[in-house]
Every structure is written in structure tokens, then in C-alpha cells.
Design a protein around this nucleic acid. Sequence first.
DNA 1: CTTCATATTGCAACTCAGTCTCAATTTGAG
DNA 2: CTCAAATTGAGACTGAGTTGCAATATGAAG
Lengths: 142, 142
Amino acid sequence: MDKRFQEFIVEKGLKSTRERREIVDAIMETTGHFDPEELYRRLRDAGSKVSRASVYRTIPLLIESGFIEEVERVDKHAHYERVIGTQHHDHMICTQCGKVIEFYSPTLEMLQDELCCKENFRKVRHHLEILGICAECRGEHA
Amino acid sequence: MDKRFQEFIVEKGLKSTRERREIVDAIMETTGHFDPEELYRRLRDAGSKVSRASVYRTIPLLIESGFIEEVERVDKHAHYERVIGTQHHDHMICTQCGKVIEFYSPTLEMLQDELCCKENFRKVRHHLEILGICAECRGEHA
DNA sequence: CTTCATATTGCAACTCAGTCTCAATTTGAG
DNA sequence: CTCAAATTGAGACTGAGTTGCAATATGAAG
């Protein structure tokens, strides 16, 4: 059970239940993206008794506590990504094979700060998705 | 009826129907974002007989032809924006009042091109959303 | 350790955006 | 004008996500 999420629970006067602990632990084991349905299935497969409702009810708490973030909605369901214990990054997504390249650029971050400053906007977080075609899909294995 | 969309229809061997023309015209009158449901209502209110199904069926064609783009999914439904006849830009979205600030930065575009080059990724398009709090919501009317 | 108000859970019914089926209609090439 | 092929509208359907409620678990106070 993540310490930061535990603190968040206490601060908000919420309760630390087995279901919440199981959900958080399952996400800790995740690398990359996940969606609620898949997370639910994974938990059940691992023997947990959590209900789908609890999974969906826990997600907003995890977002509010800064434990996960919504990343994108390619198809029609939401995707999330753990942010605690990972470094911030943005995504290049191949529209042909679906591959996701994660990248990070300090210059890009600074540039955004400048732009926000100009607009008098206080940046909290951001999502940059670059859609295109990856090298393999362009057939450039040379 | 937009000329480029007309050409697209012909090239693809599709048919130019009254419904499609009405939908395209309705979007031409739009500035800013729209969602399919709202577009549908607007058409009906204006006396059109188009069905919801036709609106939803036309949207993928409009995207494929480059006439509109999906912008973001804040709540659970999709939002689109006309791109033909408008300049490319990105968005700052206030998470408190929902205000959208559109901005454009050539430096940002170039930087992305460089990053893609480094990853050997061919950029087709991108979405940058900066989420945060706008000046008004921070109570800085000074 | 027990009590008890309150938070949380599971279930199942529900909502709502978006999709699909199919018969009826429209389009446009010949 | 004819006719195959595309398109339409209506409404049934799908599936992600939500909600109401009775049953249960949590944890602060005694």
C-alpha cells in the first residue's frame, strides 16, 4: 500500500479498506497504461473479491491524490497511468500499430511554462500526444 | 458545402447527400468546439430531418478528410473542432471554470519536430492540453 | 475489547454516448 | 430512365461508467 495514498485517505477522513489496498497494490504492479475493466479483471483473476463498482469508485480518489492520471481515450474507454514512482513524460502514439513511445523533454516543459506565463495561466499538468507513424510501420527497418 | 470535403466524397466513391451537406454546413457555421449531440440538436432545431445515426456516421468521414479533428474528452463524450479554415493551435483548459484558451507557438511546433526526428517517428498531428487554473479563477483581476 | 456513527461495499438496475440492423429511399453512372 | 450500390431513419442494442440501497466493515471513543 502506497504511503502517499494512505496519507491522503487519512487526511480526507476516509477509511483504509481491503478493497482500496488491493486496488492500489494492483496498480503498483502495473507498468504502462491500464483501463478500469482490465484492472478489475486482473484483481478478480488474482482472487480478489472487489466489485467493478469499487474499482470505478476508487479511481477518482487515486486521481485526486495524484497517484494516477488519465492519459488518453483512444477508443471509447478511459486509460490511466500511475504517476507516483514514475517520471513525467509525454507520448508519441503510432496510429497504425498503437505503439506508444514515452519521451521527456525539459526544453518542452520550460517552453510550456513560458507560454502559460504569457497567458497568465497557472499550469497544473498537461498532456501532449503526438500521433503519427512509427519507424517499423513505415517499413524502415534499414 | 466545403469544396475539399466534396472532393473527398467523390474520390472515395461516396455519394453527396443532403444530410452530409447539411452536417458540413452546420459545422462551417461553428466556431470553437462541438459535440455530436449538440450538432444533432442544432440541425434539428434548424428544421433539418437528419437522424442522430447520420450525424454519428458522418463524423468519421469528416475526420478522415481532415475537415475536423477530435480535440479532447473532458467528460465522457467526444468533442470535435473544425480544422479546415482555421489555424492549428493547442489548448489551455481551466479545470475550474472550463474556459479554453487557444494558443499557437511556432517554437513548440519546431521542438516537437525535433523530438520526433530523434525518436524516428513521423508526426502527423498532435494535441497538447495544458490543464490548470485561469487568471479569473485565481481571483487575480488586478 | 465493545460500541456505534459513518464510510464503504456488492449487487443489480440504470444512464447515456455511440453503434448496428434492416427495410425503405436516394444517388448517380450508364 | 434504369438499377446496382450507397445511404438513410427508426429503434433496438452495446458497453462503459454510475447510482440507490441494504448489508457490512472501519476506526474513534469509551
